[in-house]
Every structure is written in C-alpha cells, then in structure tokens.
Amino acid sequence: MSKNTLVIENLNKVFTTPNEQVIALKNVELTVEQGEFLTVIGPSGCGKSTLLKIIAGLDVDYTGKVELDNKAIYGPSLQKGFIFQEPRLFPWLTVEKNIAGDRSLKDPTIKQQVAELIKLVKLEGFEKAYPRELSGGMAQRVSIARALLRNPAILLLDEPFGALDAFTRSHMQEVLLNIWQTNKTTMIFVTHDLDEAVFLGQRVIIMNPRPGHIKSILPIDLSFPRKRSSLGFQEMRRAVLNEFEKVEEETYTIGAGI
C-alpha cells in the first residue's frame, strides 16, 4: 500500500435523536490512493457531508475503520485540509494574513510559500485586500490557499463551489484541477452537481440515503482537460444519471446541474 492511502472499512455512523436513531452511514467501504481525485455525489441526506467530516476528524463518533497512512483518524490534523461551502475567512485579516493564519509572515519561508500560493490560486495583487473586498470565488480561492499552506496529504472539499454562479464555478473547477495537477494532493470533493462530479473526478462515488450508503463507484476514464460538450463526457454523465434512476421507489431532486 502506498503512502497516504485512505482506507475506510465497514464504517457505520448513527445519529441518536431523542425520538429515534437515524443511520447516517451504513457499511461504507472505500480506498483512496495518494493523488487521486474523487468526487462524491448524492441527494441531501445521503451522508456525503458526514463521511467527509469523519475523514476530516471533525466527527469521531463512528464505528469501523478509518485510516490515513495506516493511522486511525481520531481528530483534525494538518494532514487533512478542509474546505467548507463558505470561505470562512477572518474579516480583520488581509488575504495574505488569512492564508498565513497562525504562522508569521515575518518568516521568509512562510512569506515565500504564501506568495507562491497566491500565484497558484491566481490572486496576485490582492495580498493586502480584506475579505469584504473579494468576490465569492476569490474568497474561496483564499481559503483553498490557506488549506494548502499546511501542505495536506488530502484535501476534503464540502460543496466548495455550491454558492458560486455558473461562470465562476467553472473557472474555479479549472483552478482546482490546476492545483491538483501541480501539487498531487489527494482530493475528495463532495457535490450535488452532476456535471461538476463528472468534470472533476477520476472516480465518482454515488451515494444514496436512508440509510446513507455508497450505491456505486463509477470510474471516469476521460483524460484531462475534459470538455463538457464531448461525446465521452455526455456518455459518462448519462451513466451516472442512470445509477440514480435505478432506484425507482424514491424520487430525488438533484441540483440544477442536471
């Protein structure tokens, strides 16, 4: 097994409310190799965000095996970067200070790394800008740079572009692919947008609710950069859609991407 492999075996998670027990995740099995780009798609309530939070160490109340680099995950660590749907920047700090966070920009190494990351996320010229002066897409790129400064082995993204308009979103997807190809960081990207899942992922994990479980895993054998208008892309898109339609008892509304 190569370094920084994520192994999930027989993962179960139950939410207990005063009235009932809800099975959020049932028997999840997944192995993610270093450098892979994985997208996770499913209707709300399928447990995709819960799965991501468990991998991040934000939720340690589960049964089963969740290991990164052969070590059980028992809490957050710098090995695992996390991007929320909201950028979550500190409003009183400039872009570069937000990226540096608890590290000092007076350290020339940090200063250099921050400058490189600002270049990577295409924010040159905005080093001294405050979050309120940034657009939604720019702010999200700052939060990605902040996560990357910690040099994570794996980046967990929880619908990071969900709040962005279609044009910004497709630009952000290209920025993210560029980062992935440059840094070789493992990416686990949760989305409810079918196009986004097919455009980014090497594998698409399809999840279903009640109880939350992995329904199927579809490899997307298309080379990067991908074209949404290409025949291959359309075929893969249809294949993912078919997986959802196999479940006849329940109807799902999936994001506007369909």
Partner: peptide
C-alpha cells in the same frame, strides 16, 4: 471561524490573539 482554528490546529494562545 472557531471550527477553522481547530482544523488548522491553532494553539490556545494563537486562538486568543488572532
């Protein structure tokens, strides 16, 4: 934001000052 400082492993002092 508090959750972010947890994910980024801020020390107590850093959390207080920043």
């Amino acid at each position: 934001l508090y959750e972010v400082t947890g994910l980024l492993q801020y020390s107590f002092k850093k959390r207080l000052t920043t």
